[in-house]
Amino acid sequence: MSQGNDITRREAVARTALILGGTLAASSLSGVRGSAWARAAAPDWRAGTLDPDQSELVATIAEHIIPATDTPGARAAGVHRFVDVMLSNYYKEGERKQFLDGLAQLDARARKELGASFVKATPAKQLALLTAIDAESYPSPRVLEKAEPLNSERARMRDSLARQSSTGPTVSDPTRPSADGGGGETARREAERGWFFRRMKELTLLGYYTSEAGAMTELKVNPMGVYRGDIPYRSVGHSWA
């Protein structure tokens, strides 16, 4: 067993402060940018699942969910490309098809209600439609819980959050596969209606806040180095990514 790869704590902290630290000079990021984010932003990037129209549709919806403000929005963070990666390399056929169907239905609804495909509609109309869909997509938590028993993106993020905020023992792993068939047929149908938009929002938040833009510009990754268990929230002023 070679010990030649040991690094000291000081080196480790120095090395990774570049990646995770709260205060970064732009130049010190250049080494990091060579990686996945750069690839996702590269002009020769190619989708695995989404065709160009679908990709544009996803990017447009995502940007409405997390728009650019004084910090980048979902499009600049490459959320549509992340969604494509998840559709291609994470979800299996069933969920992938359900998601693409949902995209198509949203576009069909846009044509019907806005008189144009979603991406061709004005931003104001797009937002109005999404706001309506958003409001329809969240039945009571009880119904949701029954219909999507803990195997959803939402629960996965709850788990992810617990781990990121405090990697101590988790109380329960809410993302385990469940043998529970879920609640009754009514609840299932009620929940089914909003499935696509909930999933779309989950993927948008996940893709955005785990991107370099979301995790380092909009928020900050909780830095390594020391642990301080009780500091004034004011001294941080934002949520850790």
Binding site: S166, N222, Y227, Y233
Partner: peptide, 8 residues
């Protein structure tokens, strides 16, 4: 007004 820093 309480928070933490670092990943324990």
């Amino acid at each position: 007004d309480h928070y933490y820093q670092g990943n324990r």
